[in-house]
Simulated assay, not measured.
Amino acid sequence: MDRRTILNALTVGLFGTMPLARRALAQHHTMAPAAVPTDARGVLVFAAATLKPALDAIVAAYRAKEGAEVTVAYGPTPALAKQIENGAPADIFLSADPVWMDYLAERRLIRRHTRADLLGNVLIVAERGSPSANPPPVIDRDFPLATLVGAGPLCMCNPADHPAGRYGKASLEALGLWDGIAGKIAIASDPQAAVVMVAQGEAPAALVFATDVKDVTGMRIAGTFPASSHPPIVYPIALTMAAPHAEAAERLLAYLRSPEARTLFDRYGYT
């Protein structure tokens, strides 16, 4: 399978079994992966769509510093992992959770010795409005989520396979909030698509990562989920077993784990 086929195929979206009207609404606002030249050369990185703003800046800095050729293809983590399983020529996989990295590891499709936990994040509920000077409240069992969502929908990723959706449902269940909003959910292909729906006034709230609303005009954090309410949010990274540009990919991987890159990730709100 060549790069052109793979990069074109990354527009695939994954949706769950929510009501058709809400699924169609979310699909309408799907964020397509970043435009990638069909003649992409050099190291090819498959990265979770939520990482795009930060990773674009970091890769640009790396290109300027090293004069290296790097292409990043963004998409939902499950779709990216499946593409690698199907023979995509990715050199590096940067996942939004350990589950899909484990999926590839179990199939011997990543180089285990290169695997590392690169980043963390914070799970939030986002709404329209101006950011407050005060820290947002921590969501607990008494948080008025049902009131905030109203008639809905609450936009979130698919709990069946998307990291953000999986973390989100785990938190809502742990805090006893799931049953009150389960029938008001619209599935989005990625967190940015969920944010777009809220920003455009088509939904009152979205369950996403804190980095997804950072510097987004007209959006604010309504509440943050306690880390104890969900599995640790971890972004693992690794070289693929079939990496066509392994040596160059190892150099890029080392840079992504460097203090210089860490400073840039911090600037975009990662933990």
Rank of each mutant, 00 (worst) to 15 (best):
R108P: 00
N8R: 09
P76I: 07
L51T: 11
R262S: 15
V99R: 02
M1K: 13
A182F: 03
A210D: 10
L175V: 06
A90R: 04
P89I: 11
T17Y: 09
P226H: 07
L256S: 04
C155H: 01
L109N: 08
A88F: 08
V198Q: 02
Q192N: 06
I139G: 11
L256F: 08
R3D: 01
L264V: 13
P244I: 06
G16A: 11
G176A: 06
A54V: 04
D97S: 12
H113G: 10
T5G: 01
G75E: 13
L104N: 06
S95Q: 11
R112D: 13
R257P: 02
P53N: 10
L154C: 06
L264T: 13
D161P: 00
P98E: 11
P76C: 04
V122R: 15
A35Q: 08
G183Q: 07
P89N: 12
T271D: 06
K169Q: 10
A57L: 07
Y74D: 05
A126H: 10
A9K: 14
T211E: 08
G152I: 03
A238I: 06
L177F: 08
A249T: 06
M1I: 12
A206T: 11
A61L: 13
D39K: 12
A160H: 03
R23W: 01
L207Q: 05
A96T: 03
P226V: 10
E173M: 10
G42I: 05
Q83F: 11
A54S: 12
V196W: 00
H230F: 05
R63I: 09
W178T: 14
I58H: 02
P89E: 14
V36G: 02
K214F: 08
G201R: 07
T38W: 06
T30P: 00
T5M: 01
L256G: 04
F225R: 05
K184N: 01
K169I: 00
H29A: 13
